[in-house]
Design a binder for these strands. Structure first.
Length: 580
RNA sequence: GCCCCCAUAGCUCAGUGGACAGAGCAACUGCCUUCUAAGCAGUGGGUCGCAGGUUCGAAUCCUGCUGGGGGUGCCA
């Protein structure tokens, strides 16, 4: 990347200046290259001379003292003029501003086209394996719209890490074991009986038409119970309750997973692996251990002295490893709690499957779990830094100005599917992606519906469709970009567009390093804006014979722009339409 | 009480310690007789929550305060 090269050149120029005695020999701080806000400050800038000052003033006490501006000049004198460097200027109080060379810029169009689908990729990961686990909603109902943020962030982070040279696995953790699943099964069972006009089995302890405490009250439970009846009839009434409940529960699980898979597909999200929580308790899943993953992990923790018994429950001593509080692993009723699964699951990820790095995408309502997860890593003898718990702040829904209280169990949630039907997956993805994960977002459903046509995603897609249209027109006219002379691209709007395209690798690097996919939508808008401005200023397919060569060059330019836009949209998981 | 996140234009939000703080939406004004006006160009709009501190330089880092959200279950 240009930026890295520049940093190296500035560093070397500084070292050279020191060698030749034009600067005092001091430590040289890391060179930071930034993109200045103002165009007159060039494409890249560094305040390196200013940062040098603290070292220099410490090293020399001579008079007259060196000014930062003079330091900048002396560094520039020794700067190697790489082909991409056009103008180099020093500016008070001590900046070095660098402008890219126009001719070099124009020829980058070919470099972009040669990169093709790899354009925008950088190699930060060097092939390291990373798992991104996201989505992972409880399969006890339809996906809630707030969860869309989890899906979009997780998938876009995975896209970014792939583009940044990591080998990425996308995983969905199916919470098909545990308490919530049982509550879900009981709720379905009650509705099932109700629809068939029968009372729940006496040994169930359930009462006709009454959803038990902690159960699921949504309308969908009734719909799903009806689907089970359509599929299976009343056969669960004629078998013992201890068989009927798991039977109904698992059919409900199947329905939930079908819905979830369907919603994910609509969101353009495709998982590499769906991992079942139950398998952690199944000895057949891990024959090499001779026992279930859970039992194996419990033995390990016991050997390590991380477990103790109190009040009839088995606890994990997280406080001894820096956790904020201790945590129940096995409840006093003998059932493993959710933390038990988390431990076994992460043992599986790191030890059995060998991921070097794992990212779990969690909502802020789970942030309290972070310390005990880190403690768990230590207890398993794993470096806690290999586990990133990526926390995003919650989405709050507003409907006609009122906060909507959301609960899957109470049945007051707004389904993701509903919003997908209203405003479409591209707008949903763009909207949910455009804010930093650290800031909570208010989603005003009325406003979102009303403004769905104003969503910036269409602005970006329109740029892509417009180029597609130009290329179609060129083909009709029998015009091509063959033998294009790129040096004809000299118009400021042409060069501005190329400059903007060349930022993509930097954006990918920035967003991947900081796990901050919200940079993508912002960049996408800037890129589209650069194209739209170019479109206004520069006719691509010209009927004037004098412009025949320019047409070739511009056709190649817009091909590159189409690629850059498509790549950016792809990273966001948004479609790139050929027409709109 | 303690822990985490946030506070920037009327609204929703960007802003890797740098130069005069930006975008979209909303408001107002222009621009379609050759490639898509879902576009372009322009105008107005700010004590970056408050108070200190670090720094040559702070919206950005540190401390305190105020306000909002989340967490602090043998629920997940």
């Amino acid at each position: 990347m240009i930026r890295e090269t520049l940093a190296r050149l500035i560093y070397e120029a500084t070292a050279e200046a020191q060698r030749q005695g034009s600067l005092p020999a001091t430590e040289i701080p890391n060179v930071v290259i930034e993109r200045p806000r103002r165009t007159e400050h060039g494409d890249y800038a560094t305040s390196h001379p200013l940062k040098m000052m603290s070292h220099i003033s410490r090293a020399v006490t001579q008079a007259p003292p060196l000014t930062p501006l003079e330091v900048a000049r002396r560094i520039v004198q020794h700067l190697e003029r790489a082909p991409f460097i056009g103008r180099v200027e020093v500016a008070p109080p001590g900046f070095i501003n660098i402008t890219l060379d126009d001719g070099w810029l124009a020829h980058q169009v070919d470099a972009i086209l040669e990169a093709g689908e790899r354009f925008g990729c950088v190699d930060l990961g060097r092939g390291r394996r990373v798992q991104v686990e996201f989505g992972s909603a409880n399969p006890t109902g339809p996906m809630h719209v707030g969860f869309g943020r989890n899906l979009v962030l997780g998938d876009s982070i995975a896209n970014l890490l792939e583009a940044a040279g990591y080998q990425v696995q996308r995983e969905y953790y199916v919470n098909d074991a545990g308490n919530q699943m049982e509550n879900f099964g009981e709720s379905l069972y009650v509705r099932y009986c109700e629809l068939l006009g029968r009372d729940p089995a006496p040994e169930s302890g359930l009462r006709a038409g009454e959803i038990p405490e902690g159960g699921y009250r949504g309308q969908y439970i009734i719909d799903w119970a009806r689907r089970i009846i359509e599929q299976e009839g009343d056969r669960f009434l004629t078998m013992p309750y201890e068989q009927a409940l798991p039977g109904i529960r698992d059919l409900g699980l199947q329905i939930a997973m079908e819905e979830i898979r369907h919603d994910c597909a609509r969101m353009n999200i495709h998982y590499d692996h769906w991992f079942s929580e139950r398998s952690l308790y199944d000895p057949a899943f891990s024959p090499e251990l001779g026992m279930s993953v859970f039992d194996h992990v419990m033995a390990l923790l016991r050997q390590g002295g991380h477990l103790y018994t109190a009040n009839g429950a088995i606890w994990f001593n997280a406080q001894a490893l820096g956790g904020d509080k201790n945590e129940v692993v096995i409840k006093s009723n003998g059932q493993p709690g959710y933390f038990a699964s988390d431990i076994a699951y992460h043992y599986n990820k790191f030890v059995q499957r060998g991921f070097e790095w794992v990212i779990d995408v969690w909502g802020a309502d789970h942030q309290g779990h972070v310390p005990r997860m880190k403690a768990m890593m230590k207890a398993l003898g794993l470096d806690p830094d290999r586990l990133t718990l990526y926390i995003y702040q919650m989405v709050t829904l507003l409907e006609s100005g009122e906060q909507v209280r959301l609960s899957k169990r109470a049945g007051t949630q707004v389904d993701l599917r509903e919003v997908l039907d209203d405003i479409g997956p591209d707008a949903v993805r763009f909207f949910l992606l455009a804010r930093s994960a650290d800031s909570q977002m208010d989603l005003d459903l009325d406003l979102a519906r009303q403004q769905s046509d104003e969503n910036p995603v269409y602005y970006v897609q329109y740029g892509h469709a417009r180029i597609a249209s130009i290329l179609r027109y060129a083909e009709e006219q029998g015009r091509t970009d063959e033998e294009a002379d790129l040096s004809l691209l000299t118009h400021p709007s042409e060069l501005a567009l190329i400059r903007k395209m060349l930022e993509l690798p930097e954006v990918v690097a920035l967003a991947a390093e900081n796990l901050a996919p919200h940079h993508l939508p912002h960049y996408a808008q800037e890129l589209a804006a650069a194209f739209h401005t170019f479109y206004r200023d520069c006719r691509v397919v010209s009927s004037d014979p004098a412009d025949a060569e320019l047409t070739r060059a511009r056709l190649r330019l817009v091909k590159a722009a189409k690629l850059a836009l498509a790549r950016t949209l792809k990273l966001m998981g948004v479609s790139a339409p050929e027409r709109m």
